[in-house]
């Protein structure tokens, strides 16, 4: 049974900022983050019955958020792949696609914009799990135990994921600096 309006509103008020910031850090676009946040809460509303007490509500919502962001990025990639064909069938949609792919993160100050945009470009090239672990640790400041719960893995595995993510990121930064 779906939750009542009142309880759903309370749940939204408690977790909306968390979900919105997670989506922003994952997608680096305000409009995309708004869209995915809506999808996350829609999923929470429909599946609250399936939530089991073996994980905390926060962990469960984080998990839904990450999965929705990954789905969104996959769909975006698919649309980009067929981007050449899109204008032939529907003109205006290709413009909205371009508008949605800009780097627009309201949490980043203007002076950091360029450096962080470059850094996120490298983070986006990391494997999914490494990217998730890095965002949850470095931006959201979660503990390794919490990250392990969200990614359904062990603390040791998270430690290894983070170490590999940092190494890969440094390698990508060095490569890009070497090219310039």
């Amino acid at each position: 049974m779906p939750p009542s309006n009142q309880s759903f509103r309370l749940l939204y008020e408690q977790y909306s900022d968390l979900v919105f910031n997670l989506c922003l850090n994952y997608l680096q676009n305000e409009a995309d983050a708004e869209e995915v946040t809506q999808d996350v809460f829609l999923k929470v509303y429909q599946n609250i019955d399936h939530f089991r007490d073996d994980s905390s509500l926060k962990t469960w919502i984080y998990r839904i958020g990450i999965n929705k962001c990954l789905d969104f990025l996959k769909a975006k990639k698919r649309r980009k792949r067929f981007g050449i064909l899109l204008p032939l069938f529907s003109g205006p949609t290709s413009e909205t696609l371009k508008a949605g792919s800009d780097f627009r993160h309201p949490g980043i100050q203007l002076e950091d914009q360029e450096a962080l945009q470059q850094l996120f470009k490298h983070i986006n090239d990391l494997p999914e799990k490494q990217k998730s672990a890095l965002i949850l640790k470095a931006i959201d400041g979660l503990s390794q135990k919490e990250i392990a719960g969200i990614l359904k893995t062990t603390e040791k595995a998270v430690e290894s994921l983070l170490s590999r993510a940092r190494k890969n990121l440094q390698k990508k930064i060095d490569q890009s600096e070497g090219k310039n």
Binding site: D17, F20, P106, Q109, L116, L119, A138, R166, Q170
Partner: peptide
Amino acid sequence: TDPTNQLKRIKKVSAP
């Protein structure tokens, strides 16, 4: 030394 240190400068924002 740690490239992820820059990420700490990202501020939390409120949902619209």
